[in-house]
Design a protein around this nucleic acid. Structure first.
Lengths: 345, 345
DNA sequence: GATTTTACCGAAAACGTTTTCGAAAGCTTT
DNA sequence: AAAGCTTTCGAAAACGTTTTCGGTAAAATC
């Protein structure tokens, strides 16, 4: 039976000190195990602190120690299987090191991303992790973070020109592998539903697609590439699928989509219009969202290890926080992806 | 062309004051628009602050004002469509009020939930929002929050016996409606895949199911109820589907599952074993995850407005924060759910 | 018994801000 | 010219903690 004192107002060192007729200094030192406090006093202090349910005032500690034990994370959105997984990894790993996570979302809007960065800086977070929005083209806010000497780690959606630690996958290679797999399977007219023009992942996956075609002597046909940039992957995929069929009819036999969601949008269109998967058209997605394993037909895709990326990203950030003021050498860690073959190919 | 001063160390009021040969007080007041500062001084200060990229030290402000402009949110997991949506709603609404969100996850573990609460209290957050873990049976940690005079709002997974503000749906009614819909459609042998025994939502949905049967003169058959409590909804649903068919064969014609994920697990089993949906068996899920609209067949389900719940929950919390020390009357807000009819019924 | 060492404690400064209160200087009113 | 206002500013205290530094008394050493 735990017993709580009703209405325990916030207890401070001062109150403990007064109760015990000693100084605030001694109380603080006793609690932190300093060696110049007698065992007896330590015991008294600790007992009273426990009894009164003393909890240090974090703001005061932060102000004094100049660190907050808090990191900031900015993602485009939380409602996204991959990001949710990364976030889970970050929070869990951070907790182990006694760090807490302030989460912000840019909603794929550059302005919001910039504002969020300012908020985090003013909050005095010990480090910042960002996955860039699709609309981010200027990286001054990242430089700002660096100029404030705040450790920064970019993950997944990164900026190539910013000099900092990064956690990524090799988008180009992953895309290459996916498309080459299609080619080896005998598909020749392979469409690509790509993302917006700016984001690095969008560029890299497109380049991988193109390279795989060229290296296998298949002519690149730009009319087979469709851009999905309405920030609504499912409907983008669905609409692009319609356009693809309207334009090319039977003269297309496979599709490489930039995300699983785009792929599923297309898949849905095909399913609803009597186009058989993979007989009439094969599909490969990207990310291995849970959904892709339960959809009909199940979706071939590329596994992107979100949880591990989150974990790794925090570890990188943590290392930078710890080695602050020392000359830092930035790392870029590349996570392994793998092709998951399912029914859609 | 924006120009940043390299290595801008943190700027403080003091530095601005010295530069301008005025006092820290005046600088502070100028920045905050106090009326007892001349227009001229205000202008000078504001310009220099902007030029130097002054950002107030949050810890100092917090310490002085005794509030952190930060709230804590604890959810079982971030990788969950419904929770992700709620979180999005919370973060977005909080941002509008200049609040930031510290996110923690209990991972369906009572111990972690308790520890997280302690962390948040010590962090000095201005308020806490929790969706309880399935394993939480003791609510002392919630009382502790209240005893610290920290506003608390529970959402979705709540504790009935804790006196505080809550945002919920009427699980019992929603379940009742779903099952009654099945009955009206002519289904008579309706199975239920329920959740763990303790969580309130699990209890309420089960009670709604039972009540709908009784009110419609259908005998309740406990052998048609299966418990999914392995924290892996998809596989729980899949395994329970097998058990259901093994035991009842054709002598069951509908299923009400506690979540969409459980429903989809079952759906997958039926699909893979030649059991036609909805001809042989109809399925209703719960929550209206995105996935349920793209699965084959699409899933009838109950829409649970996550984003709105998050938004509402924050607003409730905000109100409590603002009216602190005044006698509070706790509110329980019930959000509207609706039945989404799709192919599976 | 004098000196050094050890053990223990606390005053004070510092972190960066906000806000109260008083004071000085200029202005207006008689 | 005296009295009262207005405008403008800054000193100082406060928020709660950490840590340096010095001091005192007791214990140990010679």
């Amino acid at each position: 039976m735990i017993y709580y004192i009703r209405n325990m107002k916030t207890i401070t060192l001062k109150q403990i000190a007064e109760e015990l007729n000693i100084s605030v200094t001694t109380v603080s030192k006793a609690l932190k195990g300093y060696s110049d406090v007698s065992k007896k006093t330590k015991k008294q202090v600790k007992e009273l602190a426990k009894k009164l349910n003393y909890i240090p005032n974090a703001s005061a500690v932060n102000l004094r120690t100049q660190q907050t034990k808090t990191i900031g994370v900015i993602v485009p959105t939380t409602v996204h299987h991959f990001f949710a997984t990364v976030i889970k990894g970050i929070i869990k790993t951070a907790k182990k090191r006694d760090y807490m996570v302030i989460l912000l979302q840019s909603e794929e809007d550059a302005e919001q991303e910039i504002k969020s960065v300012d908020l985090l800086i003013s909050k005095g977070v010990d480090g910042i992790m960002i996955s860039l929005s699709n609309k981010t083209q200027n990286f001054d806010h990242l430089e700002k973070i660096k100029n404030h000497d705040i450790p920064l780690v970019l993950f997944d959606k990164i900026s190539k020109i910013t000099d900092c630690s990064k956690v990524v996958i090799n988008d180009q290679k992953a895309a290459y592998d996916a498309v080459e797999y299609l080619i080896k399977k005998g598909y020749k007219r392979i469409a690509h539903f790509r993302g917006d023009l700016n984001p690095q992942v969008s560029i890299d996956r497109f380049l991988g697609y193109k390279k795989a075609l060229l290296n296998n002597n298949i002519e690149f046909d730009s009319s087979l590439v469709y851009i999905c940039n309405n920030n609504d992957d499912f409907n983008d995929g669905h609409a692009s699928a319609k356009k693809l069929i309207d334009m090319h009819g039977k003269n297309v036999d496979a599709l490489f989509a930039i995300t699983d969601m785009v792929a599923i949008g297309a898949l849905k269109y095909f399913n609803d219009h009597g186009i058989k998967i993979p007989k009439d058209i094969a599909i490969i997605g990207f990310s291995n969202w849970f959904m892709s394993s339960v959809i009909t037909p199940t979706l071939t895709t590329i596994d992107q290890p979100g949880y591990k990326m989150g974990k790794t990203a925090f570890k990188l950030l943590y290392k930078e926080i710890k080695t602050k003021n020392v000359d830092i050498s930035y790392e870029t860690i590349e996570m392994k992806t793998s092709l998951i073959v399912r029914e859609s190919t």
